[in-house]
Amino acid sequence: MGKATNRSALFLDRAYIDQKFVELRSDIMATLDAKFRMVQDRENKIISMLGGAQTQEKRAVKAPVEKQPSVSDEINWKVEMRRRVDKMVKEYPELYADFNTVLRRVYVKMRDVYGFVSEQAIKEYRNAHPGIERASCLDAVSDSPQWRSIFEPVLSNLEEDSRKEMERRRMAAEAEMGKTRQEIIQPLIEARGDKSNYGCATYTLVKGRLKKKGVLYTNYEEGYRRDTGIKRHVSNGELIENIPALKREFAKAVGELLAEQKVVKHDGD
């Protein structure tokens, strides 16, 4: 048998050691679990932030603009014709009392020259569009390419005639106010750029327009000689200055030519 020593014997309890290992493993697992949860929370936060940015981006994208239905040629044409007719009523109240006054003038011209019958046109329009309760003659015309092609030039001619008529009236009024023939014709001479002596070329032009309208100086000359007893030569200028009726016709012809000259100049510009 061995000898006893003073060194304390160290006894290790295996159960105690196993318990400590279990506690240590639990601590390690708890620490790892906490770390995992921290990382997972960060990832969720990042994903949430990215998702919000994508949502904002989607909101920033504008919805595609819906294509508006196109307006038909018939409607565009009718709107334009109404605008032109309204303009005529506004500019020439002395000639046209209202919108329908202009249209009646156009329809009468279409009837007399092209055989247009408004009642028949409206009837055909209603047959083609049975769902329409009320229909105007302008509706019927706008629905027919044939009548549209006739209506528009007739309206254009009426616009031109209206300008001429108003210019004739203006010049005739000036003649009534005592203006001389030279004062009456001078605007036309200047508008034409006439460089002939005293505007002789323009006087000849006006004389031709009067002749075209059946106004002849010779017809007035006979009455003038009879009323005055003059035997000598009488110039056209003298007739114009002394016969009010001829002076008015002269002024009207000047006004008409002046209106045409303005249109030509405008088209040239």
Rank of each mutant, 00 (worst) to 15 (best):
G2S: 11
K3P: 03
R7C: 01
L12I: 15
D13Q: 08
A15Y: 03
I17N: 04
Q19C: 00
Q19R: 15
E23Q: 13
L24C: 04
R25V: 07
R25K: 15
D27Y: 05
M29C: 01
T31L: 13
A34Y: 04
F36N: 09
R37H: 07
V39H: 09
D41E: 13
R42N: 02
E43L: 15
K45F: 06
M49Y: 03
G51S: 12
Q54A: 12
T55R: 11
Q56Y: 08
R59S: 05
V61P: 00
V61G: 01
A63H: 06
A63V: 12
P69N: 12
S72T: 12
W77F: 14
V79K: 11
E80Y: 01
R82S: 14
D86S: 15
M88L: 15
K90L: 10
K90A: 13
K90C: 08
Y92E: 10
P93E: 06
P93Q: 06
P93I: 07
E94S: 13
E94L: 08
D98K: 10
F99L: 07
R105A: 14
Y107N: 04
R111P: 00
V117S: 02
S118D: 02
S118R: 13
Q120G: 01
A121M: 07
Y125R: 01
R126Y: 04
N127I: 10
H129D: 03
G131L: 11
I132C: 00
C137M: 05
D139H: 11
S142C: 07
Q146T: 09
S149V: 02
E152D: 14
P153L: 01
S156I: 10
L158P: 02
R163T: 07
K164C: 12
R168F: 00
R168K: 13
R170Q: 07
R170D: 15
M171G: 03
G178L: 10
K179C: 06
T180I: 01
Q182G: 05
I185L: 14
Q186M: 14
L188C: 07
L188G: 02
I189M: 08
E190N: 12
E190G: 01
A191E: 11
R192I: 07
D194L: 05
G199S: 03
G199E: 02
T204N: 05
L205P: 01
V206E: 09
G208M: 06
K211W: 09
K212F: 12
K212P: 00
G214H: 06
G223N: 14
Y224K: 02
R225L: 07
T228Q: 07
G229F: 06
K231N: 12
R232V: 03
H233K: 15
S235Q: 08
G237P: 11
G237W: 15
E238A: 05
R248Y: 09
A251D: 12
V254F: 10
L257H: 09
K262D: 11
K265Y: 11
H266N: 08
D267I: 09
G268S: 14
